[in-house]
Design a protein around this nucleic acid. Structure first.
Lengths: 136, 136
DNA sequence: GTATTCCTTGACGCCGACGTCAACGCAAGG
DNA sequence: CCTTGCGTTGACGTCGGCGTCAAGGAATAC
């Protein structure tokens, strides 16, 4: 299988495959004419990478999974190094979700306060506060 | 006040201030010798920007707040355009938190499954699955 | 005077994961 | 033979928010 076919079957681009190869993530043998030659195993590696990428994993974080698969194991996460990446990612996600949730609360509070102050000045009040941002 | 002092008082760098100026976010008058000259109002603008940046707002998203303050309003969020940004950001945050939460659940499930499969092969089982990732 | 520290502009570097061109080679169909 | 459509390498562009020089001018300290 050549690069274009693999890219299409994996739902990605040739540029991406060459990029992975350059990063040492997806080495590949060549046909006699110099063309890259992939097999079904490479497709599985790629699917593993893509799945993790969709989860927000960095490329480097997918490496243990790929190595694990290439070592002949049934799944990319059959190796301890992969499990370690899972755990680190869970911690990261928890931290990030926590931060975002906290920010969300603060922004929500600011919005509520600002809306309150705006409406306090409106109904028969002294003067309109601001005209900026209206539709001209 | 010159650029170094403002940067220090705002807890940022001169490079950042010049960057804001280049983006048209923080225009500034010059002293006779060509030095940038800031006042207390500029410090308030900067604090507004920094606060929003800490919340994860893009620079462009802080612009309505800055414009609002410079228009003489008591707070950066006294203007409808600022409130609109608040609301958009809340939506973004909700969407992002939702995605991350979903990803977290999926990764957690993958980890649990992988751990289960690993331990299933271990205690008196047929063979260890993988050696990759251990400490050599 | 001179040493130091501030200020000025300009311009390149960084990060990640590629996109997008350029300029060429190789293969197959008509 | 020519065209079309693959493939190849190389190299620069993207995005945001600055960091980090470099080469000079200005103000203050001694």
């Amino acid at each position: 299988m050549r690069i274009g076919e693999l890219a299409e079957r994996a739902g990605t681009t040739t540029r991406t495959l060459r990029y992975y190869e350059a990063r040492g993530l997806l080495p590949v043998r060549r046909a006699e004419n110099g063309y890259r030659s992939y097999d079904e195993g490479d497709l599985r590696l790629l699917q593993q990478i893509r799945t993790l990428q969709d989860f927000g994993f960095d490329l480097e974080e997918t490496r243990p999974f790929v190595d694990c698969l290439r070592a002949g194991h049934p799944a990319g996460d059959s190796c301890p190094a992969s499990l370690a990446v899972y755990r680190r990612k869970l911690d990261e996600l928890d931290a990030l979700i926590g931060q975002l949730t906290s920010v969300r609360a603060e922004v929500g509070a600011q919005l509520a306060r600002a809306e309150l102050e705006a409406s306090a000045g409106l109904p028969g009040g002294p003067a309109p506060r601001c005209e900026l941002g209206g539709q001209p």
